[in-house]
Simulated scan of single mutants.
Amino acid sequence: MKQKLSIIKIGGNVIENKQELTKFLQAFSKIPGPKILVHGGGKLATELGKKLGIQSKLVNGRRITDAQSLELITMVYGGLANKNIVAELQSLDCNAIGLSGADANLIQANKRPIGEVDFGFVGDITSVNSDALTKILDCQWTPVFCAISHNKKGQLLNTNADTIASEIAIGMSNMYETTLYYCFEKKGVLRDIANEDSVVTHINTNTYQELLDKNIIADGMLPKLENCFNALHKKVAKVCIGDISMLDEKATLHTTITL
């Protein structure tokens, strides 16, 4: 039987709220067995950019990463956000290690081709070094990934944190029984955006189509669900979406996604 591995992606609204971040990290540190944390930090980067006179450029909610923006997100994602999380996990006796995709060649990517929009230094993942990542887990270290990959030619690349979490879960699924958690400020996928308790507790391939037809799943939740089903089709055991409370083994009010 494969050992269980938990991969948790934390949303920006949790990272930016110190009280919520501490609450999350306390819950994360108590998850039994090997675990991996993935985070972004887009809003933090935007705030620091304003102080430095660097204007963020977004198209349909996606950041255009020019050379100056890449320097900014490397400072924020790989430095400020990552090291604060690692330090707090260490205070909770969770032996965390901060990583980017470039470390140990863990996440390799190609620069996204220019289409209708030139997203700049944005990476599309080509491989996850599961052997190296397994060695890190075997040392009983807890990897904390920022949303940066590399192309193995010396170039760092800004990469979607949801996708990084999904690709890590896929890459590790041959060695582990992987469960992917998307942790954000909502309790799960909601039937009614105005009702915080209207959680769709289970979604499979059939109900997913029904929810799409009824426009219950729309906007920013669409790419998240696409990542979820892509992971499930590539041997990830289960995907969960919800707030901090779902990290409790006894929790029931969140969205579980299966095939």
Results as ranks from 00 to 15, higher is better:
162 D>N: 08
230 N>D: 12
240 C>R: 11
248 D>C: 11
182 Y>C: 03
119 F>C: 03
94 C>K: 05
124 D>S: 11
236 V>K: 00
223 P>C: 08
161 A>W: 03
73 I>V: 15
195 N>K: 15
77 Y>W: 02
197 D>F: 11
146 C>D: 07
39 H>D: 04
208 Y>R: 13
237 A>C: 12
160 N>H: 05
198 S>I: 05
69 S>F: 04
39 H>F: 02
230 N>K: 14
243 D>H: 10
138 D>N: 14
27 A>H: 11
206 N>I: 12
83 K>F: 08
218 A>T: 14
18 K>E: 14
72 L>Y: 00
116 E>S: 14
19 Q>G: 06
34 P>G: 13
79 G>K: 05
115 G>D: 11
237 A>I: 06
82 N>K: 04
128 V>S: 04
117 V>N: 10
183 C>Q: 04
220 G>V: 10
123 G>E: 02
3 Q>L: 12
151 N>A: 05
96 A>P: 02
60 N>W: 00
85 I>E: 07
118 D>C: 03
225 L>C: 05
149 S>D: 08
42 G>Y: 03
122 V>L: 06
246 M>T: 05
193 I>C: 08
105 N>L: 11
176 Y>L: 01
41 G>R: 01
237 A>Q: 14
158 N>I: 05
178 T>C: 15
128 V>Q: 01
97 I>K: 02
14 V>N: 07
76 V>N: 01
235 K>F: 11
195 N>V: 15
93 D>I: 01
183 C>L: 15
56 S>P: 15
153 K>P: 00
201 T>N: 15
164 I>W: 05
217 I>Y: 10
72 L>G: 03
4 K>W: 06
140 Q>M: 10
147 A>K: 02
40 G>T: 07
202 H>R: 14
87 A>L: 10
245 S>C: 06
65 T>M: 08
63 R>A: 05
58 L>T: 01
1 M>Y: 10
125 I>M: 04
23 K>C: 13
123 G>K: 06
111 K>V: 09
11 G>E: 03
229 F>H: 06
168 I>M: 01
242 G>P: 10
54 I>K: 02
130 S>Y: 09
83 K>C: 07
57 K>L: 12
112 R>A: 10
227 N>Y: 09
112 R>L: 13
75 M>T: 06
114 I>T: 12
190 L>M: 06
223 P>R: 08
165 A>W: 09
165 A>N: 08
8 I>E: 00
223 P>G: 08
141 W>M: 15
168 I>E: 02
185 E>P: 08
70 L>T: 01
94 C>E: 12
223 P>D: 08
116 E>V: 09
188 G>Y: 07
64 I>A: 01
63 R>N: 00
248 D>L: 10
57 K>G: 07
175 M>I: 06
74 T>Q: 09
231 A>F: 08
203 I>D: 02
122 V>A: 03
132 A>T: 10
